[in-house]
Amino acid sequence: MSRDLTPPAAVQLCYENVNGSCVKTPYSPGPRLLLYVVFGLGAVLAVLGNLLVVTSILHFKQLHSPTNFLLASLACADFLVGVAVMPFSMVRSVESCWYFGRSFCTFHTCCDVAFCYSSLLHLCFISVDRYMAVTDPLVYPTKFTVSVSGICIGVSWILPIMYFGAMLYTGVNDDGLEELSSALNCIGGCQPIINQGWVLVDFLLLVIPICVIIIVYSNIFLVARMQAKKIENARGKKGSSLGSYKTRVAKRERKAAKTLGITVVAFLISWLPYTIESVIDSYMGFITPAYIYEICCWCAYYNSAMNPLIYALFFPWFRKAIQLILSREFLKGHSSATSFGSE
């Protein structure tokens, strides 16, 4: 998708007649409209899809479980990406200019990275939750309680907001790169500049939870495989009611772990290009073309729209909840007690 080429005498600026304005490189009308549709659709899906997830879990009493509360909080992070990040990034990406002021640029960047890391911490706690549920499904309800889930949710929100808020608002992120930051962030620009030291810290903060998630899910699927073999060996033998119940619970927890594992894989695939681009860009003097940066950003943003689609495909309770919400049945007084079977 090519940008319009204009002669030097007709260079367009983000702010005409303003010294220090960024150069504007707009798309032609056709691609411009297409990009607005694609990016706008992602924002709408992120907002509406995650709003359905939060409404479903909070409204229907049967869905009030520690795991689902973590999912609802994760959906809140994705919802906020759709509301507070994607619309403004859409204008920046298509118009190649930032029209919302320097202060809001800092706030927008803080929200962008904080919500990302919040999502990652949610997924990390969800992986630990699934490990406990799969390895010992009968004792799990007494270990991972609603209170424990609440603590995990608090940590997942407070740590990223405090860390990135402190880094961006104190300006330590571009220590030693002040001249480069001034050159890149002309009037009408909003590109975060992070020096090599802080990029390395951010990279480790991303990689460590990812490694924890990979290790935990690897163990989950090993345990699930062993359990499946035991069930297969015990098939045909008359088991106790406790053994039968334990088998059903274990099967349900394994299925939930697989579905949430898909959510984790989707997150990793979506955020990997942006993470790699950020590290390479920092060590190569921020020479990556703007369109590469925007592509990596939108791959990451679209992850916020993907999770509700994954839930709709693999969670029967979510599909039933959507039907009740869209048909407005959930507005009836007794709807909160709706049974979803063995969710």
Score class of each variant (00 low, 15 high):
1 M>Q: 10
4 D>A: 13
10 A>T: 11
12 Q>P: 07
13 L>P: 05
17 N>L: 04
22 C>Q: 08
26 P>Q: 10
53 V>H: 05
54 V>N: 03
54 V>W: 10
57 I>N: 00
66 P>F: 11
67 T>D: 01
73 S>Q: 08
74 L>E: 06
83 V>K: 01
85 V>C: 12
91 V>A: 07
92 R>N: 11
92 R>C: 06
98 W>E: 04
107 F>T: 11
114 A>D: 05
115 F>A: 04
119 S>V: 12
128 V>G: 07
133 A>Q: 01
133 A>W: 00
134 V>C: 10
141 P>C: 13
141 P>K: 05
142 T>W: 02
149 S>T: 09
153 I>W: 02
154 G>K: 02
156 S>R: 02
160 P>D: 05
160 P>S: 07
169 Y>L: 08
172 V>A: 11
175 D>N: 07
177 L>W: 13
179 E>T: 04
181 S>T: 15
183 A>E: 14
187 I>R: 01
202 D>C: 11
207 V>W: 01
210 I>E: 00
210 I>M: 04
220 I>Y: 09
222 L>K: 12
223 V>S: 07
223 V>H: 03
226 M>Y: 15
235 R>V: 06
239 G>S: 08
247 T>E: 15
248 R>G: 02
249 V>N: 01
256 A>C: 03
263 T>L: 11
267 F>H: 06
273 P>I: 12
277 E>M: 10
278 S>I: 04
278 S>R: 05
278 S>C: 08
280 I>L: 14
289 P>E: 08
295 I>L: 14
296 C>I: 11
298 W>N: 03
311 Y>R: 02
318 F>E: 02
319 R>S: 15
321 A>I: 11
325 I>W: 12
325 I>A: 10
327 S>A: 09
327 S>Q: 07
327 S>C: 08
331 L>P: 00
332 K>Y: 12
341 G>K: 06
343 E>F: 11
